[in-house]
Design a protein around this nucleic acid. Structure first.
Lengths: 252, 252
DNA sequence: TTCTTTGTGTAAAATTTTAACACATTTGTT
DNA sequence: AACAAATGTGTTAAAATTTTACACAAAGAA
């Protein structure tokens, strides 16, 4: 059915931000590119997407781009991020309660999370809004001063929040990692927050796309021993993987 | 000078919304299309425009497109809301600190607020994101459970937040008002939050568009005596206005 | 000056989009 | 059921656009 396919394309575009015609083609192998083109044309006329050379992008994504500081460059959700997020999402079970940070990988995770009865804590404004779309899911926003560059909150005040909240799992996306310096981020208060999240949670899953490896940011918030599961992509170096496995960390 | 030309292109695109390469070429006959292409590429990388087949469009234009279909949904009483928000914004002075709620009128206010050095507390996710765009303005998000219907937070936990925060002014938008029942809203925790905001603030300004008059919601959070200024529209009934003035409340 | 970087133009190559037509499928009408 | 009209689809060729590669000039830096 055409309607269904068009709807599916729209949703896909919403998740991915941008898709080329060839990517779309692999998603819908049973129709021709011409048909997909016509679908995109229709979506464009409905004002839901913008066609660009090579494919199309979601309007939401464009708006985010315009809000620049957050959407950093053309840093659209790469395939790696989405795949990592999907892996992470597959680990979530009903009735659990978890913490997610406010980074772009976390945003991908938010989109991939199933709409089931779970409780999610987050310090990301965009993440919270995304999650609020899901009917069965419960969201709690961690308050604090808003960091404009990544639309997350962090502040010493946030501590008081944690005192009365409990979650089993913390899923964090790191923006830098080296074996020596561990997982690090750019803001001290954010690092504080994540450390606290680690203490509160029974387990910590770390999402790390391999492009972050070798980078160092000013504030370390976790070391190898702190995490239980590492979720990464196929480019992850084998020798590094060894170091994780030695410490009984699951790498996937 | 290249910089100048690029700037000119950006402004042109801002005005026209969309331009083809050929149109651009007629505007800048003394450089080749290839050069213009490279200019557009740079603007795109800076996140200021979106390149589409044939040329480029301004990000603003894209947003307009996206708002078009949705606008009708949210368009309820929008003109009034904006006018009310503008009045409220005109009352804000530099270096003050204030609380704004998360409603749609508050969202309008967020857009109207000048980008000056003020500190804003809010429990609205969308409001926080909107305010985060402003460079000189400081935003603090109040945490709590996210209410999906209005993208605001509210929870008993929020109380602890208030303990360590101070603001002079609370600007609240009510979703229902009668003289007997005062200003009310649909959620108890939200009412709690707003009451607390009232206690913390030196003064309280209430934004009330006249369509809310006569409506009653389950939880009253403020009565006539609690507010200092009422910001409303021209439809506001004269007899009601009397009641406010009797209590030395400024009505504007 | 001389070297490097940056901006530019030209033309061919690669890619993408559009147009045109044929055919199948669905829908509505008698 | 039969028919016509409308809609959706696939295939191709043609048109248009973008990218790439290379050459060269201008502007800065050493």
């Amino acid at each position: 059915m055409r309607k269904d396919r068009i709807e599916e394309i729209a949703e896909l575009l919403d998740k991915r931000g941008k898709l080329t015609l060839n990517q779309l083609d692999t998603y819908f192998p049973d129709v021709s590119q011409m048909t997909l083109r016509r679908d995109l044309l229709q979506l464009e006329q409905a004002g839901r997407i913008i066609r660009v050379r090579g494919g199309a992008m979601s309007v939401k994504e464009v708006q985010k781009v315009s809000n620049e500081p957050y959407a950093k460059k053309t840093a659209l959700h790469t395939d790696e991020k989405i795949r990592i997020a999907q892996k992470a999402a597959s680990l979530i079970e009903e009735n659990c309660s978890l913490f997610i940070d406010g980074g772009t990988t976390a945003m991908c995770l938010a989109k991939e999370l199933p709409d089931i009865n779970i409780h999610v804590f987050t310090n990301g404004l965009a993440v919270a809004i995304e999650l609020a779309q899901k009917k069965n899911l419960n969201v709690t926003m961690l308050g604090g001063q808003v960091m404009k560059e990544n639309l997350s909150t962090a502040s010493p005040v946030a501590k008081s929040y944690f005192e009365n909240t409990n979650f089993e799992l913390a899923i964090i996306s790191a923006s830098a990692f080296t074996p020596e310096n561990g997982f690090s981020c750019g803001s001290m208060v954010e690092a504080d927050l994540l450390k606290m999240a680690r203490r509160k949670a029974k387990a910590m899953y770390m999402m790390l796309d391999s492009s972050k490896i070798g980078k160092i940011m000013p504030h370390t918030f976790a070391r190898l021993d702190d995490i239980d599961v590492l979720i990464t992509d196929d480019e992850f170096p084998a020798d590094l993987k060894e170091q994780f496995l030695e410490r009984d960390i699951v790498v996937m």
